[in-house]
């Protein structure tokens, strides 16, 4: 992605409490997002409610897989709140393979950020705790989130990640947009990068 568009958002709000962030081919992503918002609008008219996060995640996956042989060149991370109000993150590849994880990072800086997150969050595998959840049907409600951080700590970690990525990755831009999603609502925070 070139740096022509320094002020264009890389995130799009899908539902009341769902946010999709992308890397990849911007035109494909905009087409994809337009399609998904239309599908979400139809869903709202048919069911008179917002799409749940597993539903939104599955829809994104099938939409991507529908174009398996001429894919959307889009690498998405979907952030959402589950029915318990806990945060959930879904991460995708371009053809719709997806997974629920505790944290994820994609794009050209993603390869730099991901191992750092693995290290900092001290999780041997982001799957580990989730597998317990799926296999033994432990209610996520009774369990800590996969990433046991306070909001301030989490924001700080994200800032550090991007500041670090921009040291080596030339495609990481001049500005960081963070979307903070919690029970009380949605909030956007910005940070300038590369000020040195």
């Amino acid at each position: 992605m070139s740096k022509e568009m320094r002020m264009s958002p890389y995130t799009e709000q899908m539902a009341d409490k769902a946010v999709m962030a992308f890397s990849g081919f911007q035109a494909d992503v905009r087409a994809l997002q337009k399609h998904l918002s239309a599908r979400h609008l139809i869903y709202q008219h048919q069911h008179n409610k917002q799409m749940s996060c597993p539903a939104m995640a599955q829809l994104l996956s099938t939409t991507l897989y529908f174009k398996r042989f001429f894919p959307y060149y889009a690498f998405n991370v979907l952030g959402d709140l589950d029915s318990h109000g806990k945060g959930c993150v879904f991460t995708y590849d371009a053809v719709g393979s997806y997974e629920r994880v505790g944290y994820s990072s994609q794009g050209s800086g993603g390869t730099l950020i991901m191992p750092f997150l693995d290290n900092q969050l001290k999780s041997p595998s982001p799957l580990f705790q989730l597998n317990e959840y799926y296999l033994y049907n432990i209610d996520m409600h009774d369990q800590d989130a996969v990433t046991p951080l306070s909001e301030a700590e989490a924001i700080d970690l994200v800032k550090t990640c991007f500041a670090s990525a921009s040291e080596r990755d030339i495609y990481t831009g001049d500005k960081l947009e963070m979307v903070v999603l919690n029970a009380s609502g949605i909030r956007h925070e910005f940070m300038d990068l590369r000020k040195d």
Partner: peptide, 16 residues
């Protein structure tokens, strides 16, 4: 290729 955006000032090609 269909990449599109808005801004307060814009340029194409070398202008960028």
């Amino acid at each position: 290729i269909g990449v599109h955006y808005e801004d307060d000032h814009l340029a194409t090609g070398f202008g960028n």
